[in-house]
Amino acid sequence: MFIIGIILITIGVIFSTLGALGLVRMPDLYNRLQTSTKATTLGAFSTIIGVGFLNPAWLIKTIVIATFILLTAPISSHNLARASHKWGIPLSDKTSVDKYDSKTGKEE
């Protein structure tokens, strides 16, 4: 249990840092959402579950917190992506196609 907890927390910390690095390095908003928010989600998930393994009396509570983060993170990043696309944040120059813009005008 103890070893599993330490491994899980180490993985979580590494992914959190990679997510932060992605946030700084990526060229536009959508790619930042991709790399950062979700890498951090796995990072926090793994860290919290790892603490649960280190301290087995807390396991259920930590699973609840981790599941909560796992369920809410995609909703907020999806909402932010749609809002900023409608708000008019441009995509980076590397983007090959954007099929979303034309369709929204037609459907609404």
Partner: peptide, 30 residues
């Protein structure tokens, strides 16, 4: 832009949640 800052804020809170749980274990405070 503003949404970039909001993303950073969202990520900040997620990392802080992990850090809080780690501190909870360190201080042994439920």
């Amino acid at each position: 832009s503003l949404p970039d800052r909001v993303i950073a804020l969202d990520m900040f809170t997620t990392i802080t949640t992990g850090l809080l749980v780690l501190i909870a274990h360190f201080l042994n405070n439920y």
